[in-house]
Amino acid sequence: MLELKDLHKTFNPDTVNEKVALDGINLHLLPGDFVTVIGGNGAGKSTMLNAIAGTWFVDSGNIIIDGQDVTKLAEYKRASFLGRVFQDPMTGTAAGMQIEENLALAQRRGKIRGLRIGITSAERDEYREKLKILELGLEDRLTAKVGLLSGGQRQALTLLMATLKKPKILLLDEHTAALDPKTAAKVLEATERIVQKDQLTTVMITHNMKDAIAHGNRLIMMHEGHIIYDVKGEEKKGLHVKDLLAKFEEVSGGEFANDRMMLN
């Protein structure tokens, strides 16, 4: 479903700020795979997701989604294959627009936008039903401006928008990191429900190792632009946080204690 072949990306090449962000990333995901991604700051996790999303083009390598090479496809064109939820709750929604308008924008991802009406009444009923999945009461607030919602509500809405039209790949970039623990758990629950229901191929970055173990059927750890650890299936189920910590300390040479990674 998703194939990354030897991706390389260097930011600010030939300057003092030169940073090799991706240094030969190879990854192959099957349809329905749910992979969690962990790693310290600057490991290249978000960079990998942005490369898939097409925020900028990679220096070399290939990105193949469902058999189609999208390496040189513009971000807005690639969007038809992808659902994305970002870390910052402000990023994924248009604050000045209503809940239903945001959903209508997502509904038209990958379609040519013309002079048809921006939102039909049939859609409204559909959105009301789908918002119920989130269990946040948003189904009664269709015309509320998104800017009035809490971070958790916005994040849940973004998640629904990302999956409204079944994406080939769902990209979650620490989408619960900016939320309080209770809300984070709720959004993560909703994520699991939606991913299971539609059997979505998912890449989820997280700083929470427990979450990384508890969710998905595969786990990869990144460090300095490489994938350094890759476990699947039964082996992944048997993982413990201390295994990951040991692994991480092994590659990072003990600097781990200072890292932002969550230990609980």
């Binding site: 807005y76 038809s80 248009a94 000045g96």
Partner: peptide, 18 residues
């Protein structure tokens, strides 16, 4: 709507294929 979305949040708009 796409024009309004662009003004409100360009990153989100691109993510929605605009």
């Amino acid at each position: 709507s796409a024009i309004r979305a662009t003004g409100s949040n360009p990153n989100m708009s691109r993510a929605q294929g605009i």
